[in-house]
């Protein structure tokens, strides 16, 4: 049984599914009266699918986002309900325990027409993922073990732009390395070894897959992934090191400062310190929702990552 504080959208109104749109319209009108000002432009629908507990923090993140952006959030947990009731707030709809086979129907009825729909996949049956991809402009995988989701990405990408929220969290790491590779003298030297340490093996594989695919590495580049330390929300990795002839490139997370320190040792030594960014779930999903197009770099990185063995 769900405890009261774990109720999805505890401040929402409980309404039958058929009354959701009317209730949303009423709440929006009341909200405008209360706050004053004109109606806001809407920009997207975000559908979150996952187990109940994982929807709670997603709801929290989207509540912040909906306040800032014109987003309609639809949160759905799978179960056995065929005639579910919903809880509705001004910006969000929560449906608990919906039978997976009706997931599509619910999303089709509730998504904002003519605007992009993003599906934030936080868990559920792989078949449902494949089904819902038809309705999504963008599919964001965000599960602890993405093995099954990753395995079907290549069947989805033609219908929906796919990414993994890990990829978003790795953006700063990627950009730091890319930044250093702006220097011709760095990118002209072949890399011989890549070492990645971190707490999330999937993030490490994805990062290694990205470098392998982007730099066209063969098997001559040794890839060493190893577990280390504890990761926080902002950083799925602890360090990345690249060995090349005459250069050693290292990027390390500065645990207490929310920054990355990137260093080139050897010829043309250079150092940069960059912020990791806010890193909260709201910030990361907000960044991801700003992307609307297919991410070929991710797709190539994932394809390469699937060939890299995970650490034991």
């Amino acid at each position: 049984m769900t405890s009261p504080d774990m109720t999805l959208l505890p401040n929402g109104r409980e309404v039958p599914f058929a009354d959701i749109e009317a209730t949303l319209a009423r709440l929006a009108r009341d909200g405008r009266r209360r706050k004053g000002g004109p109606a806001r432009a809407l920009t997207a629908t975000v559908v979150v699918v996952g187990e109940h507990d994982r929807l709670i923090d997603a709801a929290d993140a989207l509540a912040h986002l909906s306040e800032a952006e014109g987003v309609r959030a639809i949160l759905i947990s799978e179960g056995g309900e065929t005639t579910p009731t919903a809880r509705v707030t001004e910006h969000a709809i929560g449906i608990a325990g919906l039978a997976p086979k009706f997931l599509n129907n619910a999303v089709a009825a509730l998504r904002l027409s003519s605007l992009p729909t993003a599906v934030w996949w936080r868990g559920g049956a792989p078949e449902s993922l494949q089904e819902i991809a038809h309705l999504a402009d963008r599919l964001i995988i965000d599960v602890l073990d993405p093995s099954s989701a990753w395995s079907i990405v290549d069947t989805i990408v033609e219908q929906s732009a796919v990414t993994d929220l890990r990829w978003t969290r790795l953006t700063r790491w990627r950009s730091v390395i890319a930044h250093l590779f702006d220097l011709p003298e760095v990118r002209s030297v072949p890399v011989t070894r890549l070492s990645i340490a971190g707490a999330d093996p999937f993030a490490a594989r994805l990062f290694a897959g990205w470098l392998r695919s982007a730099l066209h590495w063969g098997t001559d580049v040794t890839i060493d992934l190893r577990p280390s330390g504890s990761s926080d929300q902002r950083a799925p990795l602890d360090s990345v090191e690249l060995d090349a002839d005459g250069h050693h490139v290292s990027i390390a997370r500065r645990a207490t400062r929310g920054c990355l320190r990137a260093e080139i040792a050897g010829r043309d030594a250079s150092t940069r310190v960059v912020p990791l960014g806010e890193g909260t779930l709201t910030a990361v999903i907000g960044e991801e929702l700003g992307v609307r197009t297919r991410d070929l770099a991710f797709e190539r990185a994932l394809a390469a990552a699937l060939e890299i063995p995970a650490w034991q």
Binding site: H179, D182, L215
Partner: peptide
Amino acid sequence: MDVAATNPLLDGLRIEPT
């Protein structure tokens, strides 16, 4: 592919080129 000519790591990177 000539990796040295352009920066291949910028491809698809959401942070704009510097």
